[in-house]
Simulated scan of single mutants.
Amino acid sequence: MRLESNATIQIQKPVGEVFEGIVNPEKMTKYFISESSGRLETGKNVIWKFPEFNERFPISEIKIETNRSISFVWDPETVVNITLEKLPDNSTIVRVNENGKELNADNLKWALENSGGWANFLACMKAFLEYGIQLRKGAFDFMKEKPNK
Protein backbone atom coordinates (compact mmCIF):
# COMPACT_ATOMS: atom_id res chain seq x y z
CA MET A 1 0.00 0.00 0.00
CA ARG A 2 1.25 3.47 -0.92
CA LEU A 3 0.52 6.59 1.12
CA GLU A 4 -0.58 9.87 -0.32
CA SER A 5 -1.10 13.43 0.81
CA ASN A 6 -3.98 15.49 -0.62
CA ALA A 7 -5.25 19.06 -0.41
CA THR A 8 -7.79 21.03 -2.48
CA ILE A 9 -8.98 24.65 -2.59
CA GLN A 10 -10.97 26.96 -4.86
CA ILE A 11 -9.29 30.23 -5.81
CA GLN A 12 -11.34 33.13 -7.14
CA LYS A 13 -8.94 33.82 -10.01
CA PRO A 14 -8.77 32.62 -13.62
CA VAL A 15 -6.84 29.42 -14.27
CA GLY A 16 -4.06 31.30 -16.12
CA GLU A 17 -3.35 33.51 -13.10
CA VAL A 18 -3.31 30.52 -10.76
CA PHE A 19 -1.02 28.56 -13.09
CA GLU A 20 1.37 31.52 -13.33
CA GLY A 21 1.26 31.84 -9.54
CA ILE A 22 2.68 28.33 -9.27
CA VAL A 23 5.27 28.20 -12.06
CA ASN A 24 6.59 31.79 -11.80
CA PRO A 25 9.20 32.13 -9.01
CA GLU A 26 8.56 35.88 -8.70
CA LYS A 27 5.03 35.05 -7.57
CA MET A 28 5.79 31.86 -5.65
CA THR A 29 8.39 33.64 -3.49
CA LYS A 30 5.59 35.90 -2.26
CA TYR A 31 3.67 33.05 -0.62
CA PHE A 32 5.60 29.74 -0.48
CA ILE A 33 9.35 29.70 -1.04
CA SER A 34 12.04 32.31 -0.37
CA GLU A 35 14.21 31.55 -3.43
CA SER A 36 14.06 29.60 -6.69
CA SER A 37 16.74 29.04 -9.31
CA GLY A 38 14.13 29.40 -12.05
CA ARG A 39 10.68 28.96 -13.48
CA LEU A 40 9.01 25.53 -13.41
CA GLU A 41 9.25 24.19 -16.96
CA THR A 42 9.03 20.70 -18.42
CA GLY A 43 12.39 18.93 -18.36
CA LYS A 44 14.09 21.60 -16.29
CA ASN A 45 15.50 21.20 -12.76
CA VAL A 46 15.30 24.00 -10.21
CA ILE A 47 16.37 24.53 -6.61
CA TRP A 48 13.96 25.86 -3.98
CA LYS A 49 14.80 27.41 -0.64
CA PHE A 50 12.27 27.95 2.11
CA PRO A 51 12.61 30.80 4.60
CA GLU A 52 12.42 28.47 7.61
CA PHE A 53 15.07 25.94 6.51
CA ASN A 54 18.78 26.24 5.71
CA GLU A 55 18.60 23.37 3.20
CA ARG A 56 17.94 23.80 -0.49
CA PHE A 57 15.54 21.41 -2.19
CA PRO A 58 16.16 20.14 -5.74
CA ILE A 59 13.00 20.01 -7.85
CA SER A 60 13.30 17.53 -10.73
CA GLU A 61 11.28 15.56 -13.27
CA ILE A 62 9.16 18.67 -13.87
CA LYS A 63 6.24 18.17 -16.24
CA ILE A 64 4.01 21.09 -17.17
CA GLU A 65 0.73 21.17 -19.04
CA THR A 66 -0.07 24.89 -19.31
CA ASN A 67 -3.11 25.91 -17.26
CA ARG A 68 -3.87 22.25 -16.44
CA SER A 69 -1.16 20.51 -14.41
CA ILE A 70 2.26 20.72 -12.81
CA SER A 71 4.14 17.70 -11.53
CA PHE A 72 7.58 17.34 -10.00
CA VAL A 73 9.74 15.31 -7.65
CA TRP A 74 11.37 16.82 -4.57
CA ASP A 75 11.47 13.67 -2.49
CA PRO A 76 12.87 10.66 -4.39
CA GLU A 77 10.05 8.47 -3.04
CA THR A 78 7.17 10.72 -4.13
CA VAL A 79 5.68 12.64 -7.03
CA VAL A 80 3.75 15.89 -6.52
CA ASN A 81 0.83 16.42 -8.91
CA ILE A 82 -0.96 19.77 -8.96
CA THR A 83 -4.04 19.93 -11.16
CA LEU A 84 -6.06 23.00 -12.10
CA GLU A 85 -9.74 22.96 -13.02
CA LYS A 86 -11.31 26.03 -14.61
CA LEU A 87 -14.85 26.68 -13.36
CA PRO A 88 -17.66 28.51 -15.22
CA ASP A 89 -17.44 31.49 -12.82
CA ASN A 90 -13.77 31.96 -13.90
CA SER A 91 -12.42 30.64 -10.61
CA THR A 92 -10.06 27.67 -10.32
CA ILE A 93 -10.01 24.49 -8.26
CA VAL A 94 -6.46 23.52 -7.31
CA ARG A 95 -5.78 19.95 -6.24
CA VAL A 96 -2.44 18.79 -4.83
CA ASN A 97 -1.58 15.11 -4.54
CA GLU A 98 1.78 13.79 -3.36
CA ASN A 99 2.13 10.04 -3.34
CA GLY A 100 4.46 7.08 -3.47
CA LYS A 101 5.69 6.27 0.04
CA GLU A 102 5.26 2.78 1.49
CA LEU A 103 3.01 2.41 4.52
CA ASN A 104 5.01 2.44 7.77
CA ALA A 105 4.97 4.54 10.96
CA ASP A 106 7.47 7.17 9.72
CA ASN A 107 5.75 7.55 6.37
CA LEU A 108 2.31 7.77 8.00
CA LYS A 109 3.65 10.75 9.99
CA TRP A 110 4.96 12.19 6.68
CA ALA A 111 1.53 11.84 5.02
CA LEU A 112 -0.22 13.67 7.84
CA GLU A 113 2.38 16.47 7.96
CA ASN A 114 2.46 16.89 4.19
CA SER A 115 -1.33 17.03 3.93
CA GLY A 116 -1.19 19.95 6.35
CA GLY A 117 1.75 21.45 4.48
CA TRP A 118 -0.06 21.33 1.14
CA ALA A 119 -3.20 22.80 2.74
CA ASN A 120 -0.99 25.64 4.03
CA PHE A 121 0.50 26.09 0.53
CA LEU A 122 -3.00 26.40 -0.95
CA ALA A 123 -4.25 28.80 1.73
CA CYS A 124 -1.16 31.00 1.32
CA MET A 125 -1.54 30.96 -2.48
CA LYS A 126 -5.23 31.91 -2.21
CA ALA A 127 -4.48 34.79 0.18
CA PHE A 128 -1.72 36.10 -2.08
CA LEU A 129 -3.45 35.69 -5.45
CA GLU A 130 -6.83 37.01 -4.29
CA TYR A 131 -5.79 39.67 -1.77
CA GLY A 132 -2.02 40.24 -2.03
CA ILE A 133 -1.56 39.02 1.55
CA GLN A 134 1.63 37.14 2.42
CA LEU A 135 0.49 34.65 5.10
CA ARG A 136 3.86 32.87 5.36
CA LYS A 137 5.80 36.03 6.18
CA GLY A 138 7.14 35.39 9.69
CA ALA A 139 4.80 32.43 10.21
CA PHE A 140 7.58 29.88 10.57
CA ASP A 141 10.38 31.97 12.06
CA PHE A 142 10.17 29.78 15.18
CA MET A 143 11.44 26.85 13.06
CA LYS A 144 14.67 28.57 11.95
CA GLU A 145 17.84 27.07 13.35
CA LYS A 146 19.15 29.15 16.23
CA PRO A 147 22.83 30.13 16.10
CA ASN A 148 25.01 28.51 18.75
CA LYS A 149 25.90 30.88 21.59
Rank of each mutant, 00 (worst) to 15 (best):
A119M: 06
W110M: 10
L103C: 12
P88D: 10
A139M: 10
R39K: 05
I93L: 12
S69G: 07
E20R: 03
E85S: 09
K137W: 08
W118P: 09
S71F: 01
N81P: 07
V73D: 15
G16V: 02
V46I: 04
R136Q: 04
E113L: 14
L108W: 14
G38M: 01
W110L: 13
P88K: 13
V79N: 11
P14H: 07
G138T: 05
F53K: 14
S36D: 02
A127H: 09
T92F: 08
I133D: 11
Y31K: 00
P76C: 02
K126A: 07
V18S: 04
N6M: 13
K49Y: 09
G100W: 15
P51I: 06
S91K: 07
E102T: 10
E41P: 01
I11P: 04
V46R: 02
S34M: 07
G16M: 00
F19P: 00
Y131Q: 11
N90R: 10
C124P: 04
Y31A: 00
N45F: 09
A105L: 06
M125P: 01
V18M: 04
A105R: 15
I93E: 05
T66I: 15
P51V: 05
E77M: 12
K27A: 00
P88Y: 04
N107D: 08
N120T: 15
E17T: 00
T29M: 08
G117F: 12
E41C: 05
Q10D: 09
W118T: 08
V15M: 08
T66C: 09
A105P: 13
G21P: 00
L108T: 10
E20Q: 05
K63Q: 13
T83I: 02
K126Y: 06
F140L: 14
T29G: 05
N120M: 11
W110F: 11
S34I: 09
A7D: 07
K44E: 02
V94A: 08
I47E: 03
N67S: 10
S37Y: 11
K137I: 10
T92Q: 05
A105C: 09
S34V: 08
V94Y: 04
E26N: 00
G117M: 09
V23T: 02
P51F: 07
E61W: 12
V94H: 11
N6V: 15
Y31G: 00
A7M: 04
M28F: 02
R39Y: 04
A139L: 04
L122T: 02
E102N: 13
M28N: 00
R95L: 12
L122I: 06
D141C: 08
K126Q: 14
E26Y: 00
N99H: 14
N54T: 14
L103W: 12
A123S: 06
D89L: 08
